[in-house]
Amino acid sequence: MENVLTPTNTKNRSRIESRLIWPALLLLLLLSIAFVAIPVFLIQPFRPQTQRALEISYLLRAWSPLATVIILLSVLALTFWKWKRARRWWRKALLVIVLLLSIVPAWFARQNHFEWMFNPLHNSSYVKAADAGFVRDSDMVLAVKINNEAVAYPVRLMAYHHVVSDTVGGTPICATY
């Protein structure tokens, strides 16, 4: 027997597809959130890390800028498709909310939230040792000397910035703490 699409058949299929849209949208949104939330959870301070957790975090962080945008575009496509078929206003409103929510992980994937917490110093400036009124003699410093140029990085400042880029004696270095 031939499988002919009768008007009723088409209508049924369209209804099933239409119903599948909501779980599909929800799944995409959760996937996108997982991409950015899992590394945040795994590599948070004051929690032990395993090699496996680090590797997962690295892969998710490396791929999340692309993955979250692909997901966002898929959500956008599904939203267009569903928009024409959505008859009630609150369904359209829900579509808009899901779309807006999927923008959040795509944005977050482009942020470095560690630098929100631990402000690195990208434009460092210096004073002569004799003029450094902000360091007491008993304060600890990290001291380097390369090709006869000496520089000190007070530990109290390093404990806040953690990473300071510098060039000492012609050698590009990064002071870390």
Binding site: A132, D139, M140, A143, A152, L157, V168
Partner: peptide, 23 residues
């Protein structure tokens, strides 16, 4: 990079002309 962790006083005594990171 070879580095020392010293008190500012000890370092300044050895390197009076050097520079220090500013806050």
């Amino acid at each position: 990079v070879f580095w020392d962790e010293l008190t500012f006083g000890t370092w300044k005594h050895e390197q009076p002309q050097a520079r220090v990171l500013r806050p």
